[in-house]
């Protein structure tokens, strides 16, 4: 572990003023990422994972949003940073890939022009040179006939091609941190495999750190170094991929693993689904938000447990480590 983290988030809270009062979508999360690290951020819809990413990029523009806490990128505080200063960092040092490649590109400009625009926003470079760079990038993400594709409009490309174009754009200034919000969810598995391989290769070649938001634990197993599991706006478990996949500690993580039907071996007669539905953010239960769905909830869960644990593997659960180990051994999480 290098001493200096690339990105350090502490106590980040994102809330929205609504008719029901202040609704917290992200409730004080903290984490750090080292250069070159791929962090998987796992959670279901409404867990706050996408809002976390948008907050990191300064992309929460709603006038009703309230942001607090701190996001330090290479030591510089991003929360509350002015638009100009922010624009010097995002797109250049931090770049983002979005979930839906179908809507992520401006429909009336060519793919090449959109990449050129980003390059020229950050570097003094001639249009011709920027264009050449754009074509190179398009080729680097594995698109055949890159010069031709650069001159095409987004709607003329398939979903996989568009997502590659979005990735090429994100990479155009060699960002130190790549933030990817469900980059493969809208794509077919065979294309997903190509994109994941591409992201992995980029880390190896350029040393970019990656935050990868996904709901798919398979994707995490494939590519991540570290994992954070979010539930109702909080990180409930964090650790290395190995920690999390071999000995998950939080009952929600157990539930997630058990919910996934296996692709090989014996088929269970029933999946052990997590009962109930994720809580609405406007009506969160007091204490541990997972309590109403948790098979092991008891009185102590009325107070929100802190993240505790050893060696970087920490979970926010009141169950004692011994009890968790017992439950795990009893097959709570068939991972």
């Amino acid at each position: 572990m290098p001493a200096e983290p690339l990105l350090e988030v502490s106590g980040l809270t994102v809330s929205f003023r609504t008719e029901d009062g202040l609704v917290e979508a992200v409730r004080g999360i903290s984490f750090a990422i080292a250069p070159g690290e791929i962090m998987g951020l796992v959670g279901e819809s409404g867990s706050g994972k996408s809002q976390t990413l948008l907050a990191l990029m300064g992309l929460i523009t709603s006038p009703n949003a309230v942001l607090s806490g701190s996001v330090r990128f290479r030591g510089q505080e991003l929360v509350g940073l002015g638009r100009r200063a922010l624009d010097r960092i995002r797109g250049r040092d931090m770049a983002m890939i979005f979930q839906d490649p179908m809507t992520a590109l401006t429909p009336v400009h060519t793919v090449g022009a959109q990449i050129v625009e980003q390059i020229r926003a950050h570097e003094r470079i001639s249009p011709r040179a920027a264009r050449a760079r754009a074509v190179e990038l398009i080729s680097a993400v594995g698109i055949p006939a890159p010069a031709d594709v650069a001159g095409r409009y987004p709607h003329q490309l398939s979903g996989g091609m568009r997502q590659r174009a979005v990735i090429a754009m994100a990479l155009s200034c060699n960002p130190a941190l790549l933030i990817a919000d469900e980059p493969t969810t809208a794509l077919d598995v065979t294309v997903q495999a190509q994109i994941l391989e591409l992201i992995g290769r980029l880390r190896d070649e350029f040393g970019s750190a990656v935050i990868l938001v996904t709901h798919d634990l398979g994707v995490v197993a494939e590519i991540a170094d570290t994992v954070r599991v979010m539930y109702a706006g909080k990180v409930v478990e964090e650790g290395s991929k190995r920690d999390l996949f071999t000995a998950p500690q939080h009952p929600y993580a157990w539930g997630l693993f058990a919910s996934i039907p296996p692709l090989e071996g014996a088929r269970p007669a029933r999946l052990s689904a997590i009962p109930g539905t994720p809580p609405r953010l406007s009506a969160l239960p007091a204490g541990c938000a997972f309590r109403p769905r948790c098979a092991h909830a008891h009185a102590a869960c009325a107070a929100m447990p802190a993240l505790t644990g050893e060696g970087g593997h920490r979970a926010a659960c009141v169950l004692s480590p011994a009890r968790r180990a017992e439950l795990l051994a009893a097959g709570e999480a068939r991972s």
Binding site: V189, E197, F245, T246
Partner: peptide, 26 residues
């Protein structure tokens, strides 16, 4: 086979079928 091998499995250290990454799009 390609479809099957492209599905990411949420497990570590399992012998994976050799992955055939299909080139190109549909």
């Amino acid at each position: 086979a390609a479809l099957r091998s492209a599905v990411p499995v949420p497990k570590l250290d399992v012998p994976r079928p050799a992955r055939t990454i299909l080139s190109g799009d549909l």
